[in-house]
């Protein structure tokens, strides 16, 4: 009887541990998915803002910022 109860305890603890593991994995997966939008936004900023800024042409920088913020 004791052995059977021990096994049940171990098995239920294992299910709980697996459930917790699935929760963590789902959380990590959601976090990874969110990187898509984040990375796309950063790439867009680099292409649209940082590249014109490297020119050090003040009017070009102001124009790039205006164009960029207007297009959002």
């Amino acid at each position: 009887m004791k052995t059977w109860l021990d096994r049940l305890d171990r098995s239920s603890a294992r299910v709980e541990a697996l459930e917790e593991r699935v929760r963590v994995l789902e959380h990590d997966l959601a976090e990874l998915r969110r990187h898509n939008l984040r990375l796309a936004e950063l790439t867009d900023v680099v292409e649209q803002l940082l590249v014109p800024m490297a020119s050090r042409d003040d009017a070009a920088i102001a124009a790039a910022i205006e164009k960029f913020t207007k297009s959002l």
Binding site: L42, D44, V45, A62, L72
Partner: peptide, 21 residues
């Protein structure tokens, strides 16, 4: 009056750059 969305990185960086200048 201007649009600024704190949940949109492009908006924060774009408006931030504009205001800072």
């Amino acid at each position: 009056v201007r649009r600024l969305n704190f949940l949109e990185l492009r908006s924060v960086l774009g408006e931030g750059a504009r205001a800072a200048r």
